[in-house]
Design a protein around this nucleic acid. Structure first.
Lengths: 205, 205
DNA sequence: CGTTAATATTGACATCGACAACATATGTCA
DNA sequence: TGACATATGTTGTCGATGTCAATATTAACG
């Protein structure tokens, strides 16, 4: 048995390519993540990824799908079953933004539809799972069961919660909140601003 | 005097390239907008844009700057001076999302920091101008003057309003709200959902 | 053991951003 | 007016990328 680097067949190239891709994402950002770069990082030829992912959208979509699975798990870990609904919502929202800040390039990739293939089953499943976290929390706060069909007020409450945390995360990652933060007293960072935003919403809800 | 297509010097190539770029953006989306494509569309050689914009980030940044100027103007046109503050806020928010829907690819470009050069003076000026629209409206609603330094509640209110409309617009453009909309009664579209979201916020504020 | 399918490599092509060298027009100043 | 410096465009090239076709190697399975 030859050393792995000399073997013609890798054995688990699919997983290796996904790990390579994520490493590149962390190191070089979204711009550095190319098919050929992933192949290099995994130590295979430039055309090897084609067998496992088809095209570049395939690789990115599978990576995004794995990201959404971890994303959903991260949002759930912050909540406890005996938390009051309001507190659960805030915990989920904080988890949403915390994940975006912890894995900024992965998060941006996950929401860059133009480079993804939303028809990939893995990606659909993963996005649905993540969306369910928020949807269930809103239903619980309203004291209603989760149903296939939504009322407009239900949907509006989901849209408000989701848009708020998503917008905050995107603006933060894009550096657009910097001018706002720089006009605040020293020591007030993005976390404090988000917490204050939650309070402002709560006060009026 | 030769016909324009035969002239060596274009005369107003900078403007022509920006117009070409915007047309490509509308027709082919962000992925089709390249330096060479803009040059082709303008009828000049592939290296001509270099003299006016330096690199690709330069062209995209100038295009984004022009977009932000129109964006700020669009948000302002919806408001009337005799409107109550709450109504002004809603009008600005609607204008925000309406612009994103009317010019989706331009909007996405405007917030894609990785492809922009935020150090370009024109872009800084334009983003500041757009941010001021929201900032002033929040100050007016709170009955406070616009000041260089912000209190945390002021900033939180700006962050809430901005994040809400920005998140809604981004999720909508990325197609992420489709599952939510499909679970709503027939006839409820994105506009209705946004209006309901504003009502939900207002009710608690 | 032999055949078929899966997996990986090599080589090629069109396109892109960037750069260098060169061509042409504009404008300025003596 | 005329020469010269500068701004504006063109051509050619380079390395990198995604994709495809052709080929080589291995695994799977009867």
């Amino acid at each position: 048995m030859r050393r792995r680097s000399e073997r013609y067949h890798h054995g688990s190239l699919r997983k290796a390519l996904l790990e390579a891709a994520e490493r590149i994402l962390e190191r070089d950002g979204i711009g550095g993540l190319t098919l050929r770069a992933a192949a290099r990082q995994a130590g295979v030829s430039h055309a090897a990824p084609k067998n496992h992912f088809g095209d570049v959208a395939g690789l990115l979509s599978e990576l995004a799908a794995a990201g959404f699975a971890r994303f959903a798990a991260a949002m759930r870990t912050g909540i406890r079953d005996d938390d009051p609904p309001d507190r659960r919502m805030a915990a989920i929202g904080s988890g949403y933004v915390a994940f975006a800040r912890a894995h900024p390039d992965l998060f941006l990739l996950m929401f860059r539809s133009e480079r993804l293939d939303m028809n990939r089953p893995a990606l659909r499943v993963a996005t649905d799972e993540a969306a369910r976290v928020l949807s269930e929390a809103v239903a619980a706060r309203r004291g209603e069961a989760v149903d296939a069909v939504l009322t407009l007020p239900q949907a509006a409450e989901i849209a408000v919660a989701w848009s708020l945390v998503h917008g905050f995360a995107m603006l933060l990652l894009d550096g657009r909140l910097k001018p706002l933060l720089s006009r605040l007293p020293a020591g007030v960072d993005a976390d404090a601003l988000l917490a204050a935003a939650f309070r402002a919403i709560r006060r009026t809800a």
